[in-house]
Design a protein around this nucleic acid. Structure first.
Ligand SMILES: [Mn+2]
Ligand SMILES: [Mn+2]
Ligand SMILES: [Mn+2]
Ligand SMILES: [Mn+2]
Lengths: 218, 218
DNA sequence: AAATAAAATTAGCCTTGCCTAATTTTATTT
DNA sequence: AAATAAAATTAGGCAAGGCTAATTTTATTT
């Protein structure tokens, strides 16, 4: 099996691949994990030896079929534990990510499946991310951000991209959670700021960065 | 905070102190953890520096007040997770120990307390061991083994000392679990074997070692 | 095409937590 | 009291997973 560090790298590569799509470079991995590029190069060698990734200086880092499978299961555990922490233990959505970051590494043949069953086979985690099934399949990820939507559109908050507590607490302050209806009223050309109405309420202005971290539905 | 290894050593020392009472030597720790005595000496230095233990060649290793407190909280987490795994996820009692061995190291300020509440503040874990409260207090441990009891006595299985699956599966085969009534019919002087009747059933003979690993009530 | 900047890699070092082998200390036997 | 055995300790090493500093490669500017 994999070490804790190997798992964190795998999950990081999976994540960068999922939400950026671009070529995954050692520097990108280093930034995401807060490690030094030199350390990343070491781990790239190790994961390559284990046949979990393929590294081509032109194409960057890619997961092999096995690497993808393994990464998916880690993500599955992470998201299931997040549901557990929120729904069963009463944590808030800005507190669960870091704890799940550790829980995801607990390995037992049947633990994830039992937890899945106990939670009633949830499709999405508390941040709106789809939970991979045991076979690796999962519901579609949302991809249109609030910043992409045409002014005038009414949409629903389906997921958040950023899961730091800084962002989640700001959302809480604005009374926004998964399912909240938002109308995009206007985009300010100068800096991309967004004028929105939350759940039919007054106009509020948020930054472009804010809008890019909210994924929408409908 | 403590590393995973430091925590495992603390818990080991706590355990040896609780159920042997004797002087705790580096060799005893090494045997319990399956490590080399030389490694234990290294860790003794580290835990001493951290003021979690005091080591005196005469008295052996002892936990300081802080060490005791920390160890108790690890044990608390271990036992709470065991209850969770058995009651909520449907594991059998011989499968939960190893998983809890990892879960006990997940650190978050409120996790144990939330789990405790979620489980309904259980007093004992699935092996009959008392679960320390957040303040360190806990219900009395049972101390009389089946091997200590006088022939003729009817007693109740209150806890098991050994939690290896070899022992627990044997118990399951004999239909013994926490709460089962057992009458000790006879002790064989030759080798200490015990003739017992399980829940009023037929006579069965078990070894002395078996009897020493069952703690009784009433 | 050179010059410069950025990214990737290498070399060498550190800490943790373990090990083996050798040595010293402490207990037990004779 | 010696001899022997057991326990504890020291010395030296190793793998994992980080780091910094130096170097090489690759991209970008000029
Ligand atoms: Mn993690
Ligand atoms: Mn999430
Ligand atoms: Mn443990
Ligand atoms: Mn237990």
């Amino acid at each position: 099996m994999h070490t804790l560090s190997e798992e964190n790298y795998l999950k990081c590569i999976y994540r960068l691949w999922q939400d950026r799509g671009e070529k995954i470079t050692p520097t990108a991995i280093a930034e995401w994990l807060g490690n030094n590029p030199a350390s990343v190069v070491d781990m790239i060698r190790k994961l390559t030896d284990k046949q979990l990734i393929i590294y081509d200086k032109k194409k960057g880092v890619e997961l092999t079929a096995q690497g993808q499978k393994d990464a998916t299961l880690i993500v599955r555990r992470h998201r299931l534990w997040e549901v557990f922490l929120l729904e069963k233990l009463g944590y808030h959505w800005d507190e669960i990510h870091d704890i799940a970051e550790d829980l995801e590494h607990i390995k037992d043949a049947t633990l994830a499946d039992r937890l899945d069953k106990f939670l009633g086979f949830p499709e999405y985690d508390p941040h709106g991310d789809p939970i991979p099934k045991a076979n690796g399949k999962m519901a579609k990820r949302h991809s249109i951000t609030l910043a992409d939507v045409k002014p005038g559109t009414h949409c629903r908050v389906a997921a958040v991209k950023d899961t730091t507590s800084a962002f989640l607490q700001y959302l809480q302050k604005l009374d926004i959670s998964i399912g909240t209806k938002i109308q995009l009223i206007e985009k300010i050309p100068f800096d991309g700021s967004l004028v929105i109405s939350i759940a039919g309420g007054e106009r509020t202005t948020v930054s472009q960065k804010f809008g890019e971290n909210i994924l929408t539905d409908i």
